[in-house]
Amino acid sequence: MLIKRVGSGIAGISFLIAIVYAGSLPFFLLSALLTVVGAVEYHRLLPSKEDDNQLLLPALSLTFIFALYFSARLSSGLILAALVLFLSFFLLYILQIINFSYEGILLKLPVRFFGLIYLGGGFFFLSLLRDFSAAPLAQARALWFVLIATWASDTGAYFVGRALGRKKLAPKISPNKTIAGALGGLMLSLLLVSIYTLILGIFRPLWIPLAFLLAAVSILGDLFASCLKRDAGADDTGEIIPGHGGVLDRFDSLLFSAPSAYFLFLFLL
């Protein structure tokens, strides 16, 4: 299990580096792909999905993230086309969910529309961070700052928790997470963010509390995804990433830390 986890991690990071520096559009397309796969996994977790078309939420999520991308970058005509396409899928989705019946609407509508914002909106912030232009975090540095802070928190929590973890962090939500693991993740995040910014020559004392905050938010994102899985009676959201599970298993922390980081960077820089 550990060998698979490390091996897929190395392969994934190598691929990610290539995509990040291939350009804004290739990276956005990767974000869109992750959104679609995440939407498929999210749909599997839903409590009442038997009367849904399983392709509608992925299609709606895809049009949502493209509408966001067009509105941020392209001409008004393409923005209008994207919005029309999105609203068409939106209407189709509503009709599919309610199935011309009021039964279950209070459950069906909120959980599906939350998934739309959670996934389409969350993954879009990765593209915004990749294109962040304010010094000293321009040229994808903002994205790497967040990735390092988040994944260092995950990695530190995993290994320190296995070695030293005794007292559970949230036993009803995620029995394997420990307080020692969470502290280990926070410390590793501070260390690696400091090393990263020192190597680039952009270290500031501000990065220390910021890395701590992002690591803490990533833990909340991980616990939130665990809540979704526990409520659905699932251990993992998928098996697409060897040793890690599904897209939501791997990116759950980033879906919280990326939006938080983007607005913090806007405010601070």
Results as ranks from 00 to 15, higher is better:
residue 128 L to M: 13
residue 264 L to P: 03
residue 141 R to L: 03
residue 158 Y to C: 07
residue 242 P to F: 01
residue 220 L to E: 09
residue 32 A to P: 08
residue 252 D to K: 02
residue 30 L to Y: 00
residue 59 A to C: 12
residue 189 S to L: 09
residue 249 D to N: 11
residue 208 I to D: 11
residue 183 L to T: 11
residue 239 E to T: 11
residue 178 T to R: 12
residue 6 V to Q: 10
residue 133 S to F: 00
residue 207 W to H: 06
residue 37 V to L: 14
residue 228 L to F: 14
residue 190 L to H: 09
residue 104 G to L: 09
residue 59 A to N: 10
residue 206 L to K: 11
residue 28 F to K: 04
residue 124 F to S: 04
residue 96 Q to M: 09
residue 241 I to M: 02
residue 80 L to V: 15
residue 234 A to F: 12
residue 1 M to L: 13
residue 4 K to S: 14
residue 155 T to D: 05
residue 95 L to P: 13
residue 138 A to I: 00
residue 12 G to I: 03
residue 197 T to E: 02
residue 229 K to H: 08
residue 235 D to S: 06
residue 107 L to G: 05
residue 7 G to Y: 11
residue 44 R to Y: 12
residue 117 I to G: 08
residue 125 F to V: 09
residue 210 L to K: 00
residue 85 L to C: 15
residue 159 F to R: 11
residue 112 R to C: 02
residue 72 A to T: 15
residue 101 S to N: 15
residue 26 P to F: 04
residue 84 V to D: 14
residue 95 L to Q: 14
residue 199 I to N: 10
residue 227 C to K: 10
residue 51 D to I: 09
residue 40 V to I: 14
residue 62 L to T: 03
residue 148 I to R: 02
residue 201 G to N: 15
residue 1 M to T: 14
residue 69 Y to W: 13
residue 72 A to V: 11
residue 130 R to H: 00
residue 235 D to Q: 12
residue 209 P to Q: 12
residue 3 I to P: 01
residue 94 I to F: 15
residue 62 L to W: 01
residue 200 L to A: 07
residue 75 S to K: 09
residue 93 Y to K: 15
residue 148 I to N: 05
residue 88 S to N: 11
residue 180 A to M: 14
residue 184 G to W: 01
residue 127 S to L: 11
residue 131 D to Y: 05
residue 106 L to W: 14
residue 102 Y to L: 15
residue 84 V to K: 14
residue 109 L to N: 10
residue 55 L to R: 06
residue 41 E to N: 07
residue 218 S to Q: 08
residue 124 F to W: 05
residue 166 R to Q: 13
residue 206 L to A: 15
residue 38 G to Y: 09
residue 56 L to Y: 15
residue 102 Y to K: 15
residue 187 M to N: 13
residue 39 A to H: 02
residue 39 A to L: 04
residue 53 N to G: 09
residue 204 R to M: 09
residue 66 F to C: 07
residue 137 L to H: 01
residue 217 V to S: 12
residue 225 A to L: 08
residue 147 L to R: 07
residue 27 F to S: 03
residue 16 L to H: 09
residue 130 R to K: 10
residue 105 I to L: 13
residue 251 F to I: 09
residue 151 W to K: 14
residue 122 G to W: 02
residue 187 M to P: 03
residue 83 L to Q: 14
residue 170 A to F: 13
residue 110 P to I: 13
residue 66 F to M: 12
residue 236 D to Y: 02
residue 188 L to Q: 08
residue 179 I to N: 07
residue 162 R to P: 02
residue 246 G to P: 00
residue 80 L to A: 15
residue 36 V to L: 06
residue 20 V to L: 03
residue 140 A to K: 03
residue 181 G to R: 03
residue 242 P to S: 06
residue 177 K to G: 15
residue 234 A to T: 01
residue 102 Y to F: 14
residue 210 L to A: 09
residue 16 L to S: 08
residue 249 D to G: 05
residue 144 W to T: 01
residue 21 Y to E: 10
residue 44 R to W: 10
residue 11 A to F: 07
residue 207 W to E: 06
residue 145 F to G: 00
residue 193 V to K: 01
residue 192 L to T: 10
residue 136 P to Y: 00
residue 74 L to F: 15
